[in-house]
Structure formats: C-alpha cells, structure tokens
Design a protein around this nucleic acid. Structure first.
Lengths: 193, 193
DNA sequence: GCTGCGCATTGATTGTAATCAAGAAATCAC
DNA sequence: GTGATTTCTTGATTACAATCAATGCGCAGC
C-alpha cells in the first residue's frame, strides 16, 4: 500500500504518528493547476498554503526592470506558498507559478490555524522545518554573492540533478542568475571534460 | 528615564507589556566581548543567544578556499546568534565575531525555553519576527544573484548608511561580495557625482 | 511534409570585476 | 612622536559574463 506523500514528508524529517494522519488530511482540499498557471502574484494576499502531490512550481520576484529572479523550485512532496502573506493577510512580493500540470492539496488560513494548534506533531514539524529552511537560506545567501556561475551550476548538478532534466534551461539560468547564453556555455565547459 | 534597549526592540515590532519585562530580563546574563573576539565558530554547538547592548558583530561563512562571506552585521538593539544550532544542539556552519568592544546580554538554552514558554508576548515576538526575517532573507536572495555591485552598494547607502561609517571597508566589501579594490572604485564613482 | 515558433547554441564584441602590484593614508604600539 | 602595521587607493592587465546577432534544432499545427 502506497504511503501518502504528505505523510512521507512529515515522517522523513521528524516523525509523525500514523494514526493522526487522517485527521490532518481532512483539513486539506485538492486542486489542479495547468502548466504555467499563476498560482499567486505580487500584490495578492496569499490565501492558500500548498503541498505538491505531482508537478513542479517556481517562486520568483519581478525586478523593477522586469527581469525574473527565481528563488526556488518546489517539486512533488514539498510545501510551497508564502507564509508571511498567508498568516498576516498582507500582500506578497513574490510570484508562484506552476511549470507543469500540477496537483496540489492546500489549506486555507482557518484550517491551517486549526490544524497547527490541535495537532502537536504538526506544530513541531512546522517550527523545526522552518528553522532548518532559515539556515539553508542563509547558506545560499552567503554563496549567492560569492560563487561563480560555474560553481553555482556544478552545485546544482550535484544537489538537484533532477531539476536539470525536468526544467527548461532559461528557468535554470534565471535561478542561477545568468543569461541563457552563459548557461549554455557553462554546460559545454562542464560536460565535455 | 532610559528605556532598556531590549524592551524597546520588543515593543517596536509588536508591543510588549512593560510589567512583564523585569521577569524576562531576569533570564539573561551579561557579558563583554573584546574587539574581534570570536563568539562562536563553525563546528561549535552554539550555547547562547545574544542581544547586543553596545557594539557590533558580523556573522559569516568561511568558503572552502578560505574566503569570508559575511551574511549580516548586527548592531546594538538586535539579537544575534544561530538558532538552529542553539535549539537542536548541533554544530553550526557559521561564525560570529565582535567587530568592536561589545556588551551583550544572553540566554542559555534552558532559560530560552523557559522564557519562550512562559511569556506569551515573547513567543509572539519570536514567531512573527522570525517570519519577517525569512521574507527579508528571500528578498535579499533574489537580489544577490542579480544586482550589480554598484546597485548593492547604493542600496546599502540608502538602507544602512550607519554601517558604512562604522565598519572598515574590507568588511563592507566582503558583505557586498566584491574585493576591497572594487569597493574603493565603486565609492569613487558613486560619491563624486 | 512543410511552415512557424520557441528554445538552445555559437560567434564577435564590449563592459566590468578580479587580480597583481605599488604606493598613500590612517591607525596602533611603544 | 616615531616607526610599524593595517587599511585604502590607484594603475595595468587579465578573465569572464552580458549583449547583440545569427544560426540550428525540435516540435506543433496545418
């Protein structure tokens, strides 16, 4: 019997009691996004927090000049959203877009709060995971200023090789902060030797 | 009568009841760091969370090549530490160093947990502030890959001009992700016109 | 099969930061 | 104050990514 992706994620990090899971799952609704659909955009108040069952999304800023700065890609088995906007009901600066046909389950604010306050194992998951993400973000920050595009690319190859197969190169380029032309040349340099 | 810096910080963000403050303050101990003292370093389990009363610190990574990547500077009136290592009692990857003669108050883990669980206004401050920092970090991430050094410098001039007066330029350079030579030239370009 | 469009590659040129190398200026120790 | 060290500036050169421009490739629609 196949284990639910959400339960798998919750248990993989810190343990989550199986018997609590149906009660948690009941708080979620399901939804499908078509390829390239905007899930929320800058200026919106984010109404849902998503967990991806199938597919892939990108979160990005639009610079004043209109360039897209991709912060990260989320794939099946992970949460994506923008908690600050969601919890405080304030407009976000981020954009979220599906990159493939994408199935999600999601929570609205009311259910998020209820689940978070009545399921201790979820609270624990959330706090610890949040802490962990913060540290990862800081590490990336440190590297973002310093690493050369070649280094960034090689790190991606090592850490998230599946993304390279899954996504078009211009998105990878926007994520690495280089032009598609440069990425093409980097790939040439780094595969032939 | 002078208001305590910590109370000021707590109240400036979300409100904190005056009458609770003495009870909170009792959890803290005091300490002084000399200029350029290492407060913790990569590999350490971080034992304290600091609040700066006077002075200035920097948090940074050491790259494999030995280059320093400064993540941020903390001045009087702000917390600094590394919560992930602190709370989970695991080794950190970050380094923290005082840049001036620095007075702090600090919490150890036991007191942090007690304070956090018995003073609701503190819990609230912590959660909300953490959320806010997360969003700011993401925004910086987005910019870090894309902005030119000139833009980074001008942003710093606008947002944190005091840092420029306070810190040596090679630290500013390490924060912006450029060499000191380049920063010197950027300054020349951006002050004369 | 052919046409058109989006995406990826390649080439030539340009701009800008890193690097290497001295000096000048400021800071600290005695 | 003097000298020594640290920090900042300036110059010359080099390396590399952006940009502009053109071509190649793959795929969808007719």
């Amino acid at each position: 019997m196949e284990q639910h992706l959400l339960l798998k994620e919750l248990q993989s990090k810190y343990g989550f009691p199986d018997e609590e899971f149906p009660r948690l799952l009941a708080f979620f609704k399901e939804k499908h996004f078509k390829k390239n659909e905007i899930m929320f955009k800058a200026g919106d108040v984010v109404k849902h927090t998503y967990f991806i069952l199938k597919g892939c999304t990108r979160q990005y800023y639009l610079s004043p000049e209109g360039a897209e700065r991709i912060i990260y890609f989320a794939e099946e088995g992970s949460f994506c959203g923008e908690l600050n906007s969601f919890l405080h009901e304030t407009p976000t600066n981020l954009n979220l877009q599906s990159l493939e046909e994408t199935d999600v389950i999601y929570l609205d604010l009311k259910n998020w709060e209820t689940a978070m306050t009545t399921i201790p194992a979820l609270t624990l998951y959330h706090i610890k995971n949040h802490q962990r993400l913060m540290v990862k973000l800081k590490e990336e920050m440190g590297r973002a200023h310093i690493e050369t595009p070649d280094e960034k690319y090689r790190r991606l190859v090592n850490e998230k090789p599946h993304l390279l197969q899954r996504l078009p190169q211009y998105h990878i380029a926007a994520y690495l902060g280089v032009t598609p032309e440069t990425l093409s040349r980097i790939r040439k340099r780094n595969t032939l030797m």
